[in-house]
């Protein structure tokens, strides 16, 4: 198996205190689309920045396309494309000029430069606005331009940090259409961070779930969802939680594969929802717990996340993240 990314026991501690990565182990196959899924603050960005040689891990080893990111960082930088979460194009020049500057930084020979840039502009659907200042672009157009800048030099692997954050659903879809077609055409490995589970589900071949600086589970979207198994029944109850003994009774029911409680939601995973649902409702009511709503779903990645990380994907998020997201939206 050809590995695009091979990470062993990587630890990163910021300023001697904050442990951003706590022994990450991860392998990504070449030619695949890999999604690193986790909530804000779980260490996704730190890992991507280590893999793109922006800083070194405190310990552990990370290889990108077979090269060590610490000792062979120059080789790695020649092979990777990178789109950071923040805006990475100049807004006071045109889209064409942005591509031109990046092409020159990478030393693309002048004979092929123009052709390459025009092709790139065309393939991301920005031909009409290539000579307009980036300032006037929408958020989605800016993202596509950034991806074009990264793909201009035909990297072996493309790292994207939250590629669609702050974009509306239509723009998100267009960004992914372009990424998918690039991947098909050039066989580029794509490694992206996201906290949108639908995005990881729809567009990745392989998902790594990260929580508190550790990869806690990897697999294809199907494998991960299957590992939760059965159906997911959510009981919305009155009050934040239930007594421990009630929780224990439900857990010991033969029908129940798994049970968790989180923010007034009692979540039961079962293979036989038709029988389990009334049973649990009766049991809860018998113990004096009022059930306000019941819903039943096939497991999604959020349930996967809940199973392995013990929290919901969308919970949490610091002020800083909110501000960054808002910032992007405003610029968009």
């Amino acid at each position: 198996m050809d590995l695009a990314v091979d990470v062993e026991n990587v630890v990163k501690i910021y300023e001697g205190k904050t442990k951003a990565l706590d022994g990450v182990n991860l392998q990504v196959e070449s030619g695949k689309v890999f999604a690193l899924l986790g909530p804000n603050g779980s260490g996704k960005t730190t890992l991507i920045r280590i893999l793109t040689t922006q800083f070194k891990p405190n310990s552990g080893r990370a290889l990108v396309m077979g090269h060590d990111v610490t000792t062979e960082s120059e080789k790695v930088r020649r092979l990777v494309g990178y789109v950071p979460q923040e805006m990475s194009v100049w807004t006071d020049i045109t889209g064409y000029e942005n591509l031109l500057i990046y092409a020159k930084i990478y030393g693309v020979p002048s004979e092929t430069r123009k052709k390459l840039i025009l092709e790139a502009i065309d393939s991301i659907g920005l031909s009409d606005v290539g000579n307009t200042l980036v300032k006037s672009y929408s958020g989605g157009m800016i993202r596509r331009l950034e991806i074009a800048c990264a793909l201009l030099v035909r990297p072996k692997i493309l790292f994207l940090d939250e590629p669609t954050i702050g974009l509306d659903p239509v723009a998100r879809k267009v960004v992914w259409e372009k990424l998918t077609s690039f991947k098909k055409e050039f066989g580029t490995t794509v490694f992206f961070n996201t906290h949108y589970m639908d995005e990881a589900d729809l567009y990745s071949d392989q998902i790594g779930i990260i929580s508190r600086g550790k990869i806690i589970k990897t697999g294809t979207p199907e494998e991960l969802k299957r590992s939760v198994g059965g159906d997911v029944i959510t009981f919305e109850i009155e009050g934040d939680t239930v007594d421990d003994h009630v929780f224990d009774i439900i857990r010991r029911l033969e029908l129940v594969r798994e049970v968790t409680i989180h923010n007034s939601e009692l979540i039961v995973v079962t293979d036989d929802s038709e029988t389990a649902m009334p049973l649990v409702v009766r049991l809860l009511e018998g113990e004096g717990v009022t059930v306000e709503k019941v819903s039943m779903n096939k497991p999604n990645l959020d349930d996967v996340f809940l199973k392995y990380a013990g929290t919901r994907l969308e919970s949490g998020g610091s002020i800083k993240d909110v501000r960054q997201t808002r910032g992007r939206i405003r610029r968009g």
Binding site: R49, T53, R77, V80, P84, Q85, I105, G107
Partner: peptide
């Protein structure tokens, strides 16, 4: 402000 992302990206170029 403006160039946070750009600076990160420039660090990842061979220069």
């Amino acid at each position: 402000e403006r160039e946070q992302g750009i600076l990160k990206k420039l660090l990842v170029t061979p220069a």
